[in-house]
Write a protein that binds this DNA or RNA. Structure first.
Length: 581
RNA sequence: GGGCCGGUAGUUCAGUUUGGUUAGAAUACAUGCCUGUCACGCAUGGGGUCGCGAGUUCGAGCCUCGUCCGGCCCGCCA
């Protein structure tokens, strides 16, 4: 790291350098004045080195550093000395620089928050001064982690023959999927480009072109509301392969994931378990189950729909989970859980519990309707033992599954079952091809309109579209959807039928996706692929809750860049030029 | 579009339940002392439109209404 201005970095000097004269550059982390003795911690990307100043031996230098403050940028030359009192906590703790010459490269205002691992600054302030925040180790290390992960992925993909190809950022808007970010055209007034939600169609065209193994680490844009794990611009590891079946794709990318865990985390992962979408919904109430813990759903319709309890009898689904060892929960704790599911975010009307007491008795919130034998049957069905707590919800199937899923995750968290550092990976397979939307009274593609139906279900595309499964799959890690993909339609006729099932007229389909269907007339190979969320992959591997920590300059909740102040109005002249005024 | 939480010193927060004298703490900053610190220590000091607006009241950081900003979530995200 030697340059004209420095001989070493602030992280590399140790006892072996004692006696050498060195020049360092960096930021002042901290100044400690002890009267005749002054110490400065000098920081750069690589670490911290202590500079020592002695009033007796070098009074002029001590006078020079008098006005120095935090975050000033200085260049220092001096001799590497062994310390009187060593600091075991840092790699450079055995030595210090007995300074001889100091140059101020730049002064600094006092930063609005402390540049330390545990900063005193809140999120908002740190975002506004993100360039200062990035000086802090935790954030800096996240970006270094991201870099390392990116390099590992590129290496692996290159080694197995994948070619990285860039695709355009100015594309056209399509009605399907997420809202588009649009860019007005100056040369064609009244017309707009869209920023890509993903390079989906381009990678399929690249398959037609014969690049049978393509990938790209690429920015994608979606104009939807944000979350801790959703940013309007985010990065995908976008991949596509030709002459493959679903099995080839799952195997290929299981290899990549295995390599990443080994290379980055030093973990040998088990072969990735597969679960059908149907089973994921049935047992976890979610298409992205956190499988670090069991607490699987047990359907209780048969066991509970024979008494006078209307709520259960009229429900499409009665379903429960077992919280191990929670029979002792107090009234207050049970009320808390009830309130949890009644919150508008969950939206349940109530929660039924059965306590399997140590003495073999059962106590429940529905004792009025069910006797000990009934409750014993429930416990047996659920596999609950003495000391366990059974939590039961009822209602419309999908809604109830989703609600119980949230309760399951809540219980998992309360019981410490969602352990950091433990990774449970799942391939969720056999997604439905289409999803019915009540509001618009039509089917939507669950994945996207280019996803191939399972060949054995193709016949039902017209007769029973809702029952058709797709050759589509998601990779789920600890309850986070980290990636997903599908085998694509490569046949023009099948693609036409798909558009028809989605309610497109032939003209609409031709207008929007004609380029793709035209391309399919020139020898499209069978192909498929997937895309991983790069930001999410970083956060999941680091057990972080938010992807923002892994993005150098992220947007806030309202999709604003608080540092830039973006978005901003533009001038009338610009609007005019774009034909918007 | 909706739900919940927050906004008080440069910063992080307490104070709001029960309205009442001069709004506190820590840290940062400044000054002085200190020759082995590394979360240095000690002393002193400056620093506040209590997000903004309206209302209730003799009196509002505290109560009411509105509004803006931030965070988490639901909807949304093929």
């Amino acid at each position: 790291m030697k340059t004209t201005l420095r001989t070493h970095t602030c992280g590399e000097l140790n006892a072996s350098h004692i006696g050498e004269t060195v020049t360092l550059c960096g930021w002042i982390q901290k100044i400690r004045k002890l009267g005749g003795m002054t110490f400065i911690d000098l920081r750069d990307r690589y670490g911290i080195t202590q500079l020592a100043f002695n009033e007796e031996t070098n009074p002029e230098l001590c006078r020079q550093i008098e006005p120095f403050g935090r975050e000033w940028v200085i260049q220092v030359t001096g001799r590497v000395e062994e310390r009187y009192s060593k600091n075991k906590n840092i790699p450079t703790g055995d030595i210090e620089i007995l300074s001889e010459k100091i140059t101020v490269l730049n002064e600094s205002l006092t930063p609005p928050f402390t540049i330390e691992d545990e900063s005193d600054g809140g999120d908002e302030l740190r975002m506004k001064y993100r360039y200062l925040d990035l000086r802090r180790n935790p954030v800096k290390n996240n970006l270094l982690f991201r870099h390392k992960l990116g390099i590992a992925i590129r290496n692996y993909m290159n080694n197995i023959g994948f070619v990285e190809i860039e695709t355009p950022m100015l594309v056209n808007s399509t009605p399907e999927g997420a809202r588009d970010f649009v860019v007005p055209s100056r040369l064609s007034h009244g017309e707009f480009y869209a920023l890509p939600q993903s390079p989906q169609t381009f990678k399929q065209l690249l398959m037609v072109s014969g690049f049978d193994r393509y990938f790209q680490i690429v920015k994608c844009f979606r104009d939807e509301d944000l979350r801790a794990d959703r940013q309007p611009e985010f990065t995908q590891i976008d991949c596509e392969m030709s002459f493959v079946t679903q099995e080839d794709i799952l195997q290929t990318f299981e290899g990549l994931i295995k390599y990443i865990f080994k290379e980055i985390k030093g973990i040998d992962i088990e072969p990735i378990e597969r679960i059908t979408w149907h089973d994921a919904m049935k047992y976890y109430g979610s298409d992205k189950p956190d499988a670090r813990f069991g607490m699987r759903f047990v359907e209780l319709n048969k066991v509970l729909q024979h008494k006078d309890f209307k709520v259960f009898n009229e429900a499409e689904l009665v379903v429960g989970i077992v919280a191990k060892g929670c029979a002792h929960y107090s009234r207050k704790q049970l009320d808390e859980l009830t309130n949890f599911v009644k919150r508008p975010q969950v939206g349940a009307t109530g929660l039924v519990y059965v306590q399997c007491q140590e003495d073999g008795h059962f106590k429940s919130s529905v004792d009025k309707f069910y006797d000990q034998n009934d409750l014993q049957a429930v416990a047996k069905e659920c596999g609950a033992e003495a000391g366990d707590l059974i939590l039961i919800m009822a209602g419309p199937r999908m809604k109830t599954q989703t609600q119980l899923c949230q309760l399951r995750l809540e219980m998992g968290s309360r019981l410490g079952l969602r352990k950091a550092g433990e990774y449970k990976l799942l391939w969720v397979v056999d997604f439905p091809l289409l999803e019915w939307d009540e509001e618009t009274q039509r089917y939507y593609a669950m994945h996207h309109p280019f996803t191939a139906p399972k060949p054995e279900h193709e016949d039902m595309l017209e007769s029973n579209p809702g029952a058709v499964n797709a050759n589509a799959y998601d990779l789920v890690i600890n309850g986070t959807e980290v990636g997903g993909g599908s085998i694509r339609i490569h046949d023009k006729e099948l693609q036409k039928r798909m558009f028809k099932a989605l309610g497109f007229t032939e003209e609409e389909a031709q207008k929007q996706f004609g380029f793709l269907m035209n391309a399919f007339q020139y020898g499209a190979p069978p192909h498929g692929g997937l895309a991983f969320g790069f930001d999410r992959m970083c956060s999941v591997l680091c057990d972080a809750d938010t992807i923002r920590d892994f993005i150098a300059f992220p947007k806030n909740n309202a999709a604003r860049d608080v540092m830039l102040g973006a978005p901003t109005p533009i001038s009338d002249a610009q609007l005019k030029e774009l034909g918007l005024k």
